[in-house]
């Protein structure tokens, strides 16, 4: 959260406040406070329920390696899946958005827009089964190829999975899932790049692609980042699709293509919660608290990136 300071009134200068202004200011402030209260409530709930696990002796935690030992692999799995999804989805989404906004004939653009929005409406269980039954087998050859030729990169250390139910497959499924969000938001901001500046670029003798590089992408950058953050939020919190596809191991490994990839926090909670009792519940909630903190950190990082060059954002 960034707090913007309200402009302070110079002393001795009274401004007339109209009822409409006052009403709007009050309701905006109220909504802002409400959101903060909800967030604080969630955090308080998580902390209070996680507390027993935080103070319990290490051997009582499932797995017997203490709370950190339990959560660490899940954190690795969560970040790995989400980052992979984001790395695959963002460039693709930006390309799709640019195509729809500036290259496609109007009819094609509209049709493509519908298809992408439709992708967003498919329930995640369907993505999960698609990943399990279609994508995982289809990616098997790639797993073998990567283990053989890219094995020197830790991410592809192997041994290659024989089922395809790996972090790599999960990352791709998640990428497809977050693609619609990122591309829809990117498309909106790209379309709104001011005609004034697009024409300035064209009049300088820019080709369409150069015009896009000069006047559209810089203008839409913060929107793309915002879209990517929304997508990342969905990827971090996704439960069903990950739970179905991944045959999670328990090692905190970066290996994308073996059977031992760790599960993600959200899918681990979804899988274990129904049968959990006593301290197990507290442990799961503690992992939820960690996910909450990760999400918060990621969002603050994104804000910081966006604000770093606010002068040049085109918003002034």
């Amino acid at each position: 959260m960034t707090a913007t300071k309200a402009p302070t009134e110079p002393p001795g200068q009274r401004t007339v406040r109209r009822p409409g202004d006052r009403l709007f200011a009050a309701s905006a402030k109220g909504s802002g406070i409400f959101i903060l209260l909800v967030l604080a409530g969630v955090a308080a709930f998580l902390i209070s329920r996680a507390l027993p696990a935080l103070v319990a002796p290490a051997e009582d935690i499932p797995g017997g390696a203490g709370l950190a030992g339990y959560i660490a692999p899940l954190v690795v799995g969560t970040l790995l899946a989400a980052v992979l999804a984001l790395l695959v989805a963002t460039p693709l989404a930006v390309a799709i958005a640019l195509y729809v906004a500036y290259y496609a004939p109007r009819r094609v653009a509209a049709a493509l827009g519908y298809v992408i929005d439709l992708l967003a409406a498919i329930p995640s269980v369907v993505y999960g089964f698609w990943g399990l039954t279609v994508l995982a087998p289809a990616l098997l050859p790639f797993h073998e190829w990567a283990a053989e030729y890219l094995g020197w990169i830790p991410l592809f250390a192997g041994p290659a999975s024989n089922t395809g139910r790996t972090m790599f497959t999960v990352g791709l499924v998640l990428a497809v899932m977050i693609l619609p969000i990122i591309s829809a938001i990117s498309r909106e901001v790209f379309i709104q790049a001011p005609a004034l500046h697009r024409e300035a670029a064209l009049a300088l003798g820019a080709t369409r692609w150069e015009m896009i590089k000069m006047a559209v992408i810089p203008y839409g950058k913060s929107g793309v980042i915002a879209g990517a953050m929304l997508g990342l939020g969905r990827a971090l919190g996704e439960t069903m699709a990950v739970a179905i596809v991944l045959s999670g191991g328990a090692a905190a490994t970066l290996n994308l293509i073996s059977n031992s990839s760790p599960s993600t926090i959200a899918s681990n909670i979804a899988l274990r919660f129904p049968e959990a009792t006593g301290l197990d519940v507290n442990t799961l909630i503690a992992s939820g608290l960690v996910l909450f903190l990760i999400t918060l950190a990621v969002n603050m990082l994104a804000r910081w990136i966006v604000n770093r060059r606010a002068d040049f954002s085109g918003a002034n």
């Binding site: 004034l196 500046h197 024409e199 300035a200 670029a201 000069m214 006047a215 810089p218 203008y219 950058k221 040049f312 954002s313 085109g314 918003a315 002034n316």
Partner: peptide
């Protein structure tokens, strides 16, 4: 209308 690129 003056139209320098605001992002540059």
């Amino acid at each position: 209308r003056p139209n320098p690129f605001p992002t540059m």
